[in-house]
């Protein structure tokens, strides 16, 4: 019962925050609404027994990415750009297309018999977690290619040990490239402005 109450609280906050991002016009309020949405998504992850993903969501997404985003908002949202209004026609079309799109997805989701996907297996992550109820160890093992959930999963059919070490390394190199790229973009901007002011003078 507790889980259900918590689910509905987090679900309403997550969905409401997402709708708030679309409806609100003030960019700072939008950012706050996004924080609520992503933060309560972390709560949903906790309910789904994915505590490591939830903690990562809080640490990287809410604590890192969104702070960066708000930083961008504060640097650019001066005066007139804080609210950029849409015309009422755009709003109407956007709402209509969005509703149509959502109803399409919703009908699909409700129509599909998801129970068949489950097969005869018990919920997997519950089996994969150790006695402390944490998935961190299982995820760590999974990264190096040891599936802690082989007895219930589709990995048995594959037979191979497919770890995620290579993708992990690729992602880390990718992050490094992004770091250099973002620093370069920020730097190029400063040179350009100094050149521009030099040209004006």
């Amino acid at each position: 019962m507790n889980d259900q109450v918590l689910f509905w609280i987090f679900a309403i906050l997550a969905g409401g925050g997402a709708i708030g991002v679309v409806i609100l016009q003030d960019i700072v309020r939008m950012a706050f609404s996004l924080i609520i949405s992503l933060g309560s998504t972390a709560g949903l992850f906790f309910l789904l027994d994915a505590d490591f993903v939830a903690a990562t969501q809080l640490l990287v997404y809410v604590g890192g990415t969104l702070v960066l985003l708000i930083f961008g908002v504060m640097l650019t949202a001066s005066g007139p750009f804080r609210r950029i209004q849409m015309s009422s026609g755009e709003t109407f079309v956007g709402a209509a297309v969005g509703l149509l799109f959502f109803s399409m997805i919703a009908f699909t989701v409700i129509d599909v018999e998801w129970e068949t996907l489950k097969g005869s297996h018990s919920p997997v992550t519950a089996a994969a977690t150790d006695e402390t109820g944490s998935t961190s160890r299982a995820i760590g093992l999974r990264l190096v290619g040891i599936a802690a959930d082989t007895e219930v999963g589709i990995h048995k059919d594959r037979g191979e040990k497919t770890g995620y070490l290579l993708p992990f390394e690729i992602v880390s190199v990718h992050l490094l490239v992004v770091l250099v790229g973002a620093a370069y973009l920020a730097r190029a901007k400063r040179q350009e402005t100094s050149e521009a002011t030099g040209g004006d003078a």
Binding site: V28, F32, A55, L58, V67, S134
Partner: peptide
């Protein structure tokens, strides 16, 4: 008591900055 206690603790502590930024902006 969680296996990822420290990680989650750092995550929660990093949320503090959002309040400070909001205070500064608002």
């Amino acid at each position: 008591s969680l296996d990822i206690g420290l990680y989650l603790m750092l995550a929660v502590m990093s949320l503090e900055v959002i309040g400070v930024i909001l205070a500064g902006y608002a």
